[in-house]
Nucleic acid binder design. Structure first.
Lengths: 178, 178
DNA sequence: GGAAATCTACTCGGATACCGCGTGTCCGAGTTATGGTGG
DNA sequence: CCACCATAACTCGGACACGCGGTATCCGAGTAGATTTCC
């Protein structure tokens, strides 16, 4: 029932996808607008972006005209990067080394001779590596491109207009306005 | 910090590995002995074995001489089978279809035209498939063989003796108690 | 001596308590552009 | 007209409440085998 990756990852990824379409703009995008657009908790989303910033994925501009933008190109940010930024390096399996706590050898556990990792743990690590390799193979630019080929124009353009209108609604005259 | 697969999976897998070495024995193995051997909660381990039974991995014999044994050969039980039996089909990512709840289209969501799965979800599903394929590629017999090549004999034999002694000790206590 | 009753040990299944963690909210602090104010 | 100041809007970071789900425990019920009891 409960998934490995939570809602934070989903919020962050979708928000970043919207940001990809706006990465050309000179203006930063407000996290509040991003939250209102997707109907997700604004404060929570803002907190998520602080983690993305710490990971070097986005950069934040403080102050009244502030907001977030990409710190590096979206085609150099993988899905795994985002996941690690939000959730940290979450293991698929937390091995407790049960075999070493065997009732047979209370003082000197059997694991004395087991220098390598537990065999079950090894399998899990292999599975996790395969999974993360897949996530590392997709960049945000890849996904954004794929989405844009399925939703031709009107949706992306509508979102861009909506975000611009929101930004304009706050500040009236700004140099370099779109 | 929190892993995708919990302690239940670890308990079950290690217990089943011990069972592989005893799969030749005609007698069933008590779940209580299995728990005491590994110093894990006996009631909890017993509950886990009921799930393994429902999945058709093990079979239980009730009554005084009861216990558990494999329902099918250990080389036909994959790690993924055990994981599914214990944790159920746990998704890597629970997509909430955020893109459909866009503030732009409150009545008719944008997802109206999105017949396929969300692109982010698709990436996650691909990663999950890779992971599960790895887990499905390893059988309990494979892991048991690998362990036994690293721990030559004495450990496995010691465990077998310990379990046999426990089973025998119960019979003796019964005689003495009368 | 054999059949039935009893007793013990085991698994099964539900109910429940505990607790850590993800999710979401709130608030104060720091920062920056805008607009107003006074010289 | 220009310099200065107050204000609004935004991000940052910590603290905290809430709820869910995994972990663990307890108890009653059902079952099978060994022992005892009775005829």
């Amino acid at each position: 029932m409960a998934a490995h990756y939570g809602a934070g990852v989903e919020y962050a990824l979708h928000s970043l996808l919207y940001l990809v379409d706006r990465s050309e703009s000179a203006r930063a995008t407000s996290t509040r607008d991003l939250a209102d657009l997707q109907l997700v908790p604004p404060e929570y989303l803002a907190k998520l972006f602080t983690r993305l910033q710490r990971a070097g994925i986005t950069a934040s501009a403080e102050g009244i005209g502030g907001g977030v933008r990409f710190a590096r190109s979206p085609n150099q940010v993988s899905v795994l990067d985002v996941v690690h930024a939000i959730e940290g390096t979450k293991p698929l399996f937390a091995c407790r080394e049960i075999r070493r706590r065997c009732a047979l050898f209370p003082e000197r556990p059997a694991g004395e001779k087991i220098v390598e990792v537990c065999s079950i743990h090894a399998v899990m690590l292999e599975a996790q590596a395969k999974m993360e390799a897949t996530l590392a193979g997709w960049t945000l630019q890849d996904i954004a491109d794929r989405v844009n080929t399925k939703l031709p124009g009107e949706f992306t353009a509508g979102v861009a207009m909506w975000l611009d209108k929101r930004a304009l609604q706050r500040g009236k005259n700004r140099k370099g306005s779109l």
